[in-house]
Amino acid sequence: LETFPLDVLVNTAAEDLPRGVDPSRKENYLSDEDFKAVFGMTRSAFANLPLWKQQNLKKEKGLF
């Protein structure tokens, strides 16, 4: 999966995202380093959170 810089994904409308980016899964296009910096946890820890908590975190970080 291709990764993009944080500033390309945060608070970006679906139509302005790079081609192929799923707007409902912007976090998947962050590098592992950016993911950890944004969410303060690994991808696996994030995946283990309840869906509502994942969505709330994504909203807080501008990735929803």
Rank of each mutant, 00 (worst) to 15 (best):
K61P: 00
K59Q: 10
L1F: 15
V10S: 06
N48Q: 11
S44D: 14
S44C: 13
A37L: 14
R43E: 01
N11R: 10
P18V: 03
D34P: 00
N48Y: 09
L17F: 07
K59F: 10
F4A: 03
E60I: 10
V21K: 03
G40M: 08
D32R: 04
P50G: 02
V21Y: 05
L17Q: 03
L49F: 06
A47L: 12
V38E: 04
V21W: 05
F39Y: 02
E60M: 10
N48C: 14
G20N: 11
K58E: 02
D22E: 06
D22I: 06
A45N: 10
T42C: 08
R25D: 03
T3K: 10
A45G: 07
L30D: 01
P23N: 05
P18Q: 04
V21H: 03
S31A: 07
R43S: 04
R19D: 15
Y29F: 08
T42I: 07
R43N: 02
K58R: 07
R19H: 15
L57E: 03
T3V: 13
V8T: 08
D32E: 11
L1P: 12
E60R: 07
L17S: 05
D7V: 10
N11I: 06
R43K: 13
R25W: 08
E33P: 08
A45R: 09
L17H: 03
V38Q: 03
A14D: 15
D32I: 06
L30T: 01
K26R: 14
P23D: 06
W52K: 08
F35I: 01
V8R: 12
L49E: 05
M41T: 03
P5E: 06
E15V: 11
V8S: 08
G20K: 06
A14W: 12
F64E: 15
N11D: 08
M41Q: 03
F64Q: 15
E27P: 02
P5T: 06
N56W: 12
N56Y: 13
V10D: 03
D16R: 09
Q54V: 02
D22C: 08
D22L: 05
P18R: 03
F35K: 00
N28I: 12
L6N: 04
E27Q: 04
V21Q: 04
V38A: 08
N11C: 13
G62N: 06
R43P: 06
A37M: 13
L63I: 08
L6I: 12
W52C: 13
F39S: 00
V8W: 13
F4D: 03
R25L: 09
T42N: 12
W52G: 07
F39M: 08
A14E: 14
D32A: 08
S44Q: 14
N48M: 12
K36N: 14
L63R: 03
L63F: 10
T3E: 06
W52A: 09
L17D: 03
K58L: 09
T42A: 10
A14R: 10
T42L: 08
D16G: 09
K59W: 11
F4S: 03
P23Y: 07
T12G: 08
A14T: 13
Q55D: 14
E15W: 01
F46L: 01
L51T: 09
L63E: 03
R25Y: 12
Q54W: 00
F64T: 15
L6A: 06
D7I: 09
L49S: 01
S44W: 12
S24G: 10
G40D: 10
V10W: 05
E27I: 05
Y29I: 02
L49C: 03
D34V: 09
D32S: 06
P50W: 01
P18N: 03
D16H: 12
Y29R: 02
E2W: 06
G40W: 03
A14N: 14
L1W: 15
D22M: 05
Q55P: 00
L57Q: 02
W52S: 11
V38F: 05
W52M: 09
P18C: 06
R19T: 15
R25V: 09
A45E: 15
P5V: 02
D16A: 11
V38L: 12
P23R: 06
G40H: 10
K59P: 00
V38C: 11
Q54G: 00
L6S: 04
W52E: 14
L63H: 04
F4G: 03
P23A: 10
A45T: 11
A37T: 13
L6V: 09
N48D: 14
E2S: 12
K26I: 15
T3H: 11
D34M: 06
V10F: 06
K59D: 07
E15Q: 14
V10I: 14
D34Q: 07
E2C: 15
E15M: 06
E27R: 01
E15K: 14
